[in-house]
Amino acid sequence: MPDELLPDDLLIDRLAADLKPVRPRTNGRDGLLVGALCILELALFLLTGAMRPDMPVAMHHPSFWWKLTSLGLIAAVSGTASVVSFHPAGSPRRGIRWVLAIVLACLAVGWGLDSGRAGWAALDARLDWRHGVQCLVKMLLLALPAVAGLAVLMRRGAPTDRSGTAWSVGIAAAAWGAFVFVFACPSDDPLYIAFWYMLACLSVAVVSRLLLPVLARW
């Protein structure tokens, strides 16, 4: 907001005098930047030897592919919605609705995969609190590069629905962090995955929703 009102003509003269050439932002370039950052993070993560040792066996479990495709899909859709909403005329709302539908569909598939298991009796053992908290912390850390990258682009862009965009960014980054963690996570129990992964994603999304609208105010 201008501190002191000038006549419009004077303000316009000042803005024109301050004009410097700029490179127009495009959704495609922002998408490529985010994609490159995410791929780099995944590559570095795998290069550190963090991949689960029983990966060949895990790849035969439907639940491994369930968590990988679910999180990849959620990250892709919410990431796209985020980048689109960095343009003033773009809205994240439709993308968020799609993401919610995908999450519900993924949970339904997970429920189907879980139906053959022992049931809810061993809930405490299945949720495995000690390992669950460790997984939660790792997913939060793995979400940080994507949150930071998307936050920089959000701040540089001109989102006109800052709270919606912040939700979208938080969901995208959280889903990506969880996607990367899938390669290290030793559990293929759908209940464990649904609980701890959703908790991690919700945590990142809520913190993003609280912080990013303030950081990206314009």
Partner: peptide, 21 residues
């Protein structure tokens, strides 16, 4: 105030205009 605030926003965010749109 609204007009001048918006003119400043147009200036600050001019790189977000996509010439294809």
């Amino acid at each position: 105030d609204a007009v001048q605030d918006t003119l400043l926003a147009v200036h600050e965010k001019r790189h977000t205009y996509d010439p294809a749109r």
